[in-house]
């Protein structure tokens, strides 16, 4: 009988050690490793102590407990049902149902307040801050000059004055104009091989931040959709099904890139909209 008691006492002794270690390391300013190990040691001592105690000093059973049937005797249930079925007039009951129903519906209206700001989704999602004549700026607000976009580089551009919007970021790249195969009607959307696409993946909206320059591919780091820059950012593989929307570009007098309009379709992940 002595040995288990000693073991249990030793385990709780470990907890005392852990407590001292935790307290001392807190005071000494060690904020994670030693403090955490002190706590862990303390709890481990408690765990060992309790378990040893249960295994050695306490009755082991097995004990047997009888189950009572989980069904009420029929009489009891009938009595309850009779209680519930107290007769009442039909009209008040129906009126109560109507009252609760309409009142419940009225309670749904304030849910609309959860949508705090801005126009309805179908309007807000369809447009971004890009307009004809809005200059492209980088994340520091400096205008992006066409000459800065050298072949093989990648610039993330924002509409001037709208650096913080979630849906406007565009990737600006320069490709060989002779190799560019854009869909019909977009011939004038580029400036000497400089193209711009929405940076938001058309699958789940992640920023398509990986540019594999030699292959002219944009890759999404979230689900590995690959877009072919030379073919108007058409999806090549991965779960994205639509091309990255292209931003029409032109040049202003100072050689700065300017949008020639908004993206032709909504950017980012798709949603229930006429197509």
């Amino acid at each position: 009988m002595k040995r288990p008691e000693r073991g249990i006492a030793a385990a709780f002794g470990v907890t005392v050690l852990g407590a001292v270690m935790a307290a001392a390391s807190y005071v000494a300013g060690a904020d994670r490793l030693l403090l955490g190990l002190g706590f862990a040691l303390g709890f481990a001592g408690l765990a060992a102590g309790f378990v040893l105690w249960a295994a050695t000093l306490l009755p082991q059973g097995p004990y047997v407990e009888e189950r009572e049937p989980m069904v009420s005797p029929p009489g009891e249930r009938e009595a309850l049902e009779a209680e519930y079925d107290r007769p009442a007039g039909r009209l008040p009951r129906r009126m109560l149902a109507l009252a609760l129903g309409t009142f419940g519906l009225a309670g749904v209206f304030p849910v609309r307040s959860l949508i705090v700001h801005g126009p309805s989704p179908s309007v807000a999602l369809a447009t971004t801050a890009w307009r004809d004549g809005v200059r492209l700026v980088d994340q520091d607000g400096r205008p992006v000059r066409a000459a800065d976009v050298t072949p093989g580089t990648m610039v993330t551009a924002f509409p001037e004055g709208h650096l913080d919007t979630g849906d406007s970021a565009a990737v600006v790249l320069r490709v060989d104009p002779a190799k560019l195969r854009l869909p019909a009607g977009r011939e004038r959307w580029t400036v000497d091989g400089v193209v711009a696409f929405s940076k938001l993946c058309t699958h789940a909206g992640c920023p398509v931040g990986q540019y594999v320059a030699p292959a002219q591919q944009l890759v999404c780091p979230c689900h590995q959709s690959v877009f072919d820059v030379l073919r108007g950012a058409e999806p090549m593989s991965g779960p994205a099904a639509r091309s990255l929307p292209q931003l029409p570009l032109r040049l202003d007098g100072d050689g700065v890139l300017v949008a020639a309009g908004d993206f032709p379709e909504p950017v980012g992940a798709g949603y229930w909209r006429p197509m």
């Binding site: 955490g36 706590f39 862990a40 481990a44 408690l46 102590g49 309790f50």
Partner: peptide, 19 residues
């Protein structure tokens, strides 16, 4: 007692990992 031991073990493992 066994269950208190388990509670302590869960805390010990969580704090051990956290540390």
């Amino acid at each position: 007692f066994r269950s208190l031991g388990l509670l302590s073990a869960v805390l010990a493992v969580s704090f051990g990992l956290g540390a």
